[in-house]
Write a protein that binds this DNA or RNA. Structure first.
Lengths: 213, 213
DNA sequence: AGACTCGTGTTACCGCTAGTAACACACGTT
DNA sequence: AACGTGTGTTACTAGCGGTAACACGAGTCT
């Protein structure tokens, strides 16, 4: 049997892989998302082909890198979502958790969501195959929670998925804008968004003397 | 004075620029967003340096290209938003207009929103500096409409902006997911999203026998 | 012990990309 | 006739992602 051998070597390989990932993380967080494979290899103290043997191609390395951060983010969101509290409180806590995360580590956020930003040159990571999945995963997880928790009558499942993706998109877009312009405090943003979800758009009155009719 | 000369030559330059843009449009819509400058130049029947003289760099060409489509999309959204109807009807009409647009021309949509998709190689357009602006512009315009039309008491302006960006993000994310999976009809999606905005999330009852407490 | 495998590492290369001189032609203006 | 300006070319650079081809070292099987 070669189990011992295999596990031993595999263990070594996994350790190497983790080291490489950490080096890549450092470079990406320092140089922005347009970090080149050469630069990452240099940071890790090795040369390109090893990177390619471990991760296949640049997309593979990106995916591995993104998965770590995404998993961490999703875990904290799950925690906020599963907290024993009223629904509005849970919604606000989840929004706040997300916003706190992107506020605390904007570089990570920009890497996950806008992986082609940064300096000219623009051989950055691809976005469509990976940054979308981040939002998709959040949307699907949220959909699952909604479906588990809420009684929406017939068509619950489909409604939950629409809402999951829609809510995640709302959170993401508002957070992205907020992170760039900082027009208000995090708490205000959370309250504004929760108000929107609590039907304040529908309930608001028309402006008197407005344009048109 | 050189006004006559300048206007004449400038007119010619503008015509050329428009022709180049149309060629670029054809290529991008055919080859996807990873269209190379060489390919675009070839489609236009010329060589690269002319493209660079007209648009500066690849980002400039992308921006010019994106502006055309974005302007068109925004115009149709404005129309739906300004229609003389009840608020919920207007909201649904706007959602439907957006979804109909991305459904009718998914290639344009993918180019605007996910400009780095497509085949391997991945020297595609950059996304952070341009695709975000598309959503930002929509968010700001929507915020303006909300602020003009709705009476939200003190803090209206800030609330309108938060909602504008949040709503656009919701629409975008849901649309993106829907376009990929087609889990339901357009009308159903519109209704589900409008329901969400009309507070149905807040009003829904807890599921009996749910997990936890 | 010796052959064998397997992961680690290298150098040197390919094809492609964005972007840039340097040069040449044509045209309307002065 | 001289000029400026827009149009067009060829030929090139620098860098990227990605890939052979080869070499070393350590544990394993016979």
């Amino acid at each position: 049997m070669d189990t011992t051998q295999r596990t031993e070597q595999q263990r070594s390989a996994d350790r190497r892989r983790r080291e490489l990932l950490e080096a890549a993380d450092r470079v990406v967080l320092r140089d922005g998302p347009q970090a080149s494979m050469n630069a990452i290899a240099a940071e890790a103290g090795i040369t390109k082909p090893i990177l390619y043997r471990h991760f296949g191609d640049k997309g593979g390395l990106y995916a591995a890198l993104a998965k770590r951060h995404t998993d961490a983010l999703l875990a904290s969101l799950r925690a906020a979502l599963d907290a024993p509290a009223e629904r509005r409180e849970r919604v606000e806590a989840t929004l706040d958790t997300y916003l706190a995360a992107i506020e605390a580590r904007p570089q990570v956020y920009r890497f996950l969501m806008h992986p082609s930003d940064g300096a000219p040159g623009e051989q950055g990571f691809d976005v469509g195959k990976h940054s979308a999945p981040v939002l998709r995963r959040m949307g699907e997880e949220l959909a699952q929670v909604i479906e588990e928790r809420l009684d929406l009558g017939p068509g619950t499942q489909q409604l939950a998925r629409v809402w999951g993706h829609g809510l995640v998109g709302m959170m993401h877009a508002a957070g992205d804008w907020w992170l760039g312009e900082r027009p208000c405090s995090r708490a205000e943003l959370v309250r504004s968004l929760a108000d929107l979800l609590w039907g304040r758009l529908a309930a608001a009155g028309d402006k008197v003397g407005g344009p048109g009719f």
